[in-house]
Simulated scan of single mutants.
Amino acid sequence: MRLALIAHDEKKPALIEFAKNRSDILSKIDLIATGTTGQRLIDEAGLEIERKQSGPLGGDMQIGAEIANETCDGVIFLRDPLTAQPHEPDITALLRLCDVHETPVATNLATADAVVDELVREKEGDGFEDYE
């Protein structure tokens, strides 16, 4: 199972807190993230992350390519709908790709929990039996 983690600057602390709270299951998942978010998740949540480029350098596009190649099973993109900065990744293209390839995507913490829980449910029997 492969899950992408992305967050606008103002939402990075929330994603890190989410990752810490769900580290029991996230540590069993192949995680990818944009550069800065990935490094913070490594440093602050202690997770193994495959880091792509930072968002402004094309990391969101690299994750988009994984969605298009169907090598990404889900996306958590905590976006800041009120104060996103011009240098931050644009969610529109990723949402389109997720819709085209029927890849679950979460844009807030409530749906992030739902996406992780559903991916785990789908993978029960693949080392996730003891998760609850």
Rank of each mutant, 00 (worst) to 15 (best):
V75W: 09
A14E: 10
A14I: 09
C72F: 10
L82N: 02
N108Q: 00
E122N: 03
E118N: 14
L119C: 05
R22D: 03
L31S: 05
A114K: 12
R22F: 09
V120P: 03
D9C: 07
D90G: 15
R40D: 14
K123Y: 07
E44R: 12
A84S: 14
E66G: 04
Y131P: 04
I67L: 11
K12C: 05
A106D: 04
D43R: 14
L41W: 11
K28Y: 12
L97C: 06
T111P: 10
P56R: 09
E70F: 00
A68F: 11
D126P: 01
H87N: 12
K123W: 03
L57C: 07
Q53V: 02
V115G: 05
A106G: 01
V116T: 06
L109M: 03
T36R: 03
R96L: 15
E129K: 03
A112R: 01
E44K: 14
G46R: 10
L95N: 15
E44A: 12
D80Q: 06
R121I: 06
T111A: 13
P56K: 08
E129H: 03
C98H: 05
P56Y: 08
E10T: 11
V115N: 05
T103F: 04
L78E: 00
D126Q: 14
V116M: 02
D113W: 00
L41M: 13
N69P: 05
L82V: 08
L41K: 09
I29H: 06
H8T: 01
E129G: 00
R22T: 08
N69Q: 13
E70R: 04
T37F: 02
V116H: 01
E50Q: 11
H101A: 07
K28V: 14
A14Q: 09
L3N: 03
G55R: 00
C72G: 12
V100F: 12
E10V: 09
D117L: 06
P104Q: 08
L3M: 04
G59M: 05
L3V: 04
T36W: 05
L3R: 02
I63W: 03
A93H: 03
E129C: 00
L15V: 07
T103Q: 04
A106N: 03
E50Y: 11
V100N: 09
E48M: 10
A114V: 12
F18Q: 01
I63G: 04
A14L: 10
H87Q: 15
A33V: 05
E48G: 08
H87F: 15
G55C: 02
L95D: 13
R22P: 07
C98Y: 05
T71I: 10
H8E: 02
V116N: 05
R79N: 00
F77R: 01
A7H: 01
C98T: 09
L5Q: 01
A7Q: 00
L94N: 07
